[in-house]
Design a protein around this nucleic acid. Sequence first.
DNA 1: GGCTCATTGCCTAGTTGGCT
DNA 2: AGCCAACTAGGCAATGAGCC
Length: 724
Amino acid sequence: MNASKYYLLAYDVALENLSTLYVYKVPEEQVGLARYLLNQERVPHTISKEPGTTGLKICTTDRSSLLESKLGYEYHAEEAKPSEKTLNRLISSAVRLRFLEEGWVSSVSKIYKPDPSKAKPLINNLALRYEHSVRLTVDDLSSGRKALFIDPTSKIEFTKTLDYISKVYPEQAKEISFIKIKGTPTSFYIVHNEEARESYKEVYSKVAEAISVYQGLKVSFPKNTREVVTATPKSLRLNNILRSKIPNLPLSEKRVVLPLPAEVLVPVGTLENVSLFGSTPSLVIPPEERVEKVKNIASELDLERLDFSGIRVKIGREKLLSITSRDFIEISYSNEELKKLWDWEPTFKNDPSRRRLLLIVKLKADIKTYSDKCLQATQKIYEGLKNRFPEVFNVQYTDVLVSLEDLDAIVSTYSGGYDEKYVVLLYDRDLDKHGNLVGRFELGFAQRGFYPHVIDLSTEDGYDSKIKFKLMNIIRDFAVRVNAVPSAPSPPPQLRGISVVGIDSTIVPLKRSHVYVGVAITLIKPDGSIDYDVKISRLAESDVDVLTSVIRDELRQNPRLLVIVNKSSLDSFLENLGSETLKDCILVSVTKTHSYSRLLAKYNDKFVNLSKTNLFVRLAPSYNGGVQISRYLANTTTYSRGSYEAGTIRPVLFNIAGSIDHDIILQYLQKLTYYAPISKSWLPSIPWPLHKSDKICKKINRILKAAGESSILVDIPQDVWRKL
DNA sequence: GGCTCATTGCCTAGTTGGCT
DNA sequence: AGCCAACTAGGCAATGAGCC
């Protein structure tokens, strides 16, 4: 494919007029009210803290008579030139006001039109899919061009309440556990509790009142209800409010149990709940359709000229923003180089001094049992591993289903005399819906000195193909742990002798709250070879704290580091670490979730996903204490078959800070993204060290959850942690 | 030091479905 | 096993100053 041009789902923005800005100092408790009033009188605004001053300020493009008359605020004309960030927020506010004028409603991070005629019915009208729903952002490209990014989404909402559903769909109703109050985002988990059910007459009105205050909108419950549902709030904050306001509510696992009338409840519109009533519809939006939606919405809303008091913005919506060579770079690579990074075989050496056990175990689920296809699959996995590792591992297999009580017996039967013990846990996700069982097994085996590895058999269809891929992935994963990887991506000359570390964090549940634990994984040593070394950090109260302390620990051992963090911004790290750090060290953050645009190409007059992973769009750099942070949007994956375009690929955001040319760092990061020792069939979309630390964090999270209250005291041997 | 107001942005965590 | 797409929800920081 020869794409002649690249496009963003965005329109050019021209700021035609901006008068003096006004600033109001606002007491904290009135910020929300003030915003509400400003929306009422159509005044674009943003809340920001200007450097060098103290005080919460609402910055507006015009004086607000409501703020002055109703709340008695005094205005100040702002003399300083607004920052680009403030400017972009004001423009974004103006755009959002136009949407609100047209009856759109703000949701968590999107804005949508709750108009049934703009929605498609789902599952026999039980739910609606609102298709007029978008995410909006204003930002600058590196050339200085300003863009309004518009990304279409859907919003799914159930329309029928639980009393109806339990009558018409009694079987499905039993399966629903995640619910919310209709017309609000307040959600609950169903918990059966007789005491709470009995108390409904006394506490109904109090519960409705407390939720109204929490939500800021009126919630009322019918006095006579035929069906009472008992549930705990998902929100910890709401839980605590209810607990203090209504004493004597029954408790379940530290959460209050409430009686709620079924008439006001709907299932939360998750895919899981929708799927109970039939197969879920496809929600993916391919590029052409996505572009059409953006164009339709833009024309319906008349975004061309946004004329608000004190600000006039012109949106060039006649055509999508096509990016010029000033705003992107293409980093090419040779096919041979890619093949070498991707398509390798492990180089296991038989080391008689290290006896390695590979134990294959099927988990015993409580009630249901495994399908024939799953059982066949386990047999194939055993044979595959046995044949693939004749010298390296002693592969053992237990044919019986293993329960948690059997662990000690299993361990004593199989594990004598080995230096390294690996266990592959086979299970069916459908028999362990919430993963509790897997976590407990991982914990149990890790405590007994095994490195646990999990395979889900639920998608087995009885054919060989999937097992083949799974086996290949397991083998490659083990190869990494025992340093049997033939080559790592060679760094560019400027980065020789630098170690690469991926860092992520996860939550540790505590009795009344939680703390964070960080994971640093060194994957590339200074000489360019693989070094699989997992380090678990001390605990800290926030993820930034824990990540910063992990970075500090790593730098103490080796200041020449390329640190990759899973965040969308580097600001908090630069502030904590200081710019001195960047003399030797390179800080990079990467994220898949952001509100920036998709990257599209045009082919045969149609918008399509990019077919290559070499495009990097430059956003305007940001600065923090004089340190330049380069920002790039990059397409890191492709649809493997050109004609198959189910959805629109989401680009990845890179932030780079450091004293080496950022384009060169980017080139190395790109290589690390192609370097995929885990799957032979698919490339990860983020650099491998970060990908790996993310996976290890998830595993640690499962283990600590399974350990429950005593999670901090988990007695897992150090060497197992290090190779987790 | 924690909590409060409201809102946005960015994150985690979980789901289904299609793919190799 | 992994990847992607898509959806849902809540948590927390940011935004500050005052109150207990």
